[in-house]
């Protein structure tokens, strides 16, 4: 994958297994509902981006937050019955504040 836009150190690196926080937050955020609570693998660190959770509410988006590309198996997101092909995956851009280590659950 050629999505490595920054070498800035983050909490996670490619290959790490992560769980997406399942918090329900009152403000705008960019984490799709269908990956909340799901387990995936970091595929790329895409670099620092303005924080949309601040910008959507009149903020500047600072400080920037690291964005990760996280890969989920279709079967893990939708269940084995609904998945069209067991090898297919879903790649979602997720900000660092939504990621947790698998063992911290």
């Amino acid at each position: 994958m050629g999505v490595t836009l920054s070498a800035a150190p983050g909490l996670f690196e490619p290959g790490d297994t992560v769980v997406i926080r399942s918090d329900s937050v009152p403000h705008h955020h960019r984490t799709p509902w269908f990956i909340k609570g799901k387990t995936g693998v970091v595929r790329a660190v895409s670099g620092p981006f303005h924080n949309p959770e601040s910008r959507a509410h009149g903020g500047t988006g600072a400080p920037k937050r690291l964005l990760y590309q996280v890969e989920f198996r279709q079967t893990d997101v939708w269940g084995g019955v609904r998945a069209e092909n067991r090898a297919d995956v879903l790649l979602v851009d997720v900000y660092e504040q939504w990621l947790e280590r698998e063992d911290s659950q």
């Binding site: 836009l5 960019r30 799709p32 981006f49 964005l67 590309q69 090898a87 879903l90 979602v92 851009d93």
Partner: peptide, 15 residues
């Protein structure tokens, strides 16, 4: 075909 892996990218951010 089934031999091709489908990778759906959900572009949820400023990328």
């Amino acid at each position: 075909g089934d031999h091709v892996q489908v990778r759906v990218i959900d572009s949820a951010a400023d990328l």
